[in-house]
Structure formats: C-alpha cells, structure tokens
C-alpha cells in the first residue's frame, strides 16, 4: 500500500479568475510536497473562470489527494483528472541558419510544425503535438544544434 508506482497524470482545474488564485494552487503543491511537471493557465473565454492544466506525477493515492485538496480550495470550481484526454504541447526551437533547413522543415512538418521566423543568423521553428511526441522531436533535432528551446507545457481537454 505504501510503495505504489508513481505515474504521470494530467489534471485540469477550473478556477475563479481572481487575484492570487494561482498562488493558492502552487502553494498547495509545494506545501504538500507534490510535483508539478508543467502548468499552463489561461482565461476561459466569456466566463469569470480560468483553466489550468497541470502535469504532475504520483501514486494513485497521491493523485487522489491532489484532486481532493485542489477541490477544497475555495475558488476552485472543478477538478478533472481523466485518463482519456486529448493533450497537446507546443515548442519553439531556435536553429542556426547554417543547419540543413530542408531537413528541419521536413521534421517540423511531421510534428505539426513549420519554420515560423527567419532572422539573419537563426531560424525559429514551431511544433505542436502530444507531449511524448514533442519529447521525441526534441531528441531527434539535437544534431541540428538547437540554440534555444521553449516548451509551452501541456494543455489538455477531456474527450
């Protein structure tokens, strides 16, 4: 019962869009020793709510506690912790212009992306895909000497 496997979970939290609500969420995680792998937040259009997507990991018991503790916060409306969801993440990658641009462009296309900006010495490429595929993409493009990588963190929607 104590040694349960830790697994990756995506939790969506709908919160009232008010001051310090994000601190309440992150304080809860740090105060109780839970992990945050990534966290995204944005207002839900035409409502007074925001939606957070938190990627976390923990045993079944820990995940259950996380959802219950989140729900206990006063400005939290709903907590979704579903296994069945559509998940996407975006990454921006800066490459030197001297790299093989057609290779990069083809790879990006395979991951729902493209070259979005071209500068004097660098290009910026964008990809948007499932987080595991983003991982994979970032591994593959290592040989093209990426100078900078920015990941957005996952967003998810229950099916």
């Amino acid at each position: 019962m104590i040694t349960e496997n830790s697994e990756r979970r995506v939790i969506s939290v709908i919160v009232v869009n008010e001051a310090s609500v994000l601190s309440r969420i992150t304080d809860l995680f740090s105060g109780r020793g839970y992990n945050i792998t990534s966290l995204t937040v944005a207002p839900i259009p035409e409502s007074r709510y925001s939606r957070l997507t938190i990627v976390t990991s923990g045993s079944v018991r820990v995940i259950e506690q996380i959802t219950k503790q989140l729900h206990k916060l006063i400005p939290v409306l709903r907590v979704y912790e579903h296994a069945d969801l559509v998940e996407k993440e975006m990454a921006l990658i800066k490459f030197p212009l001297s790299e093989n641009l057609s290779d990069i462009s083809t790879l990006c296309a395979a991951y729902n992306g493209k070259i979005v900006n071209v500068g004097e010495n660098v290009i910026i490429a964008m990809v948007a895909d499932e987080p595991v595929r983003i991982e994979n993409f970032l591994r593959v493009i290592k040989k093209y000497n990426p100078k900078e990588i920015v990941r957005s963190g996952a967003v998810a929607l229950e099916r």
Partner: peptide, 16 residues
C-alpha cells in the same frame, strides 16, 4: 499578509 496566511487558513482575502 495574505501570502503568509494562505497556507495556514481555510481561506483569505485582501480587500482592495
């Protein structure tokens, strides 16, 4: 104050 009391209250408010 609300930053400090957040983790040791059921809820808190800063009234602006």
């Amino acid at each position: 104050a609300v930053g400090i009391s957040r983790s040791c209250t059921k809820h808190n408010y800063l009234v602006t």
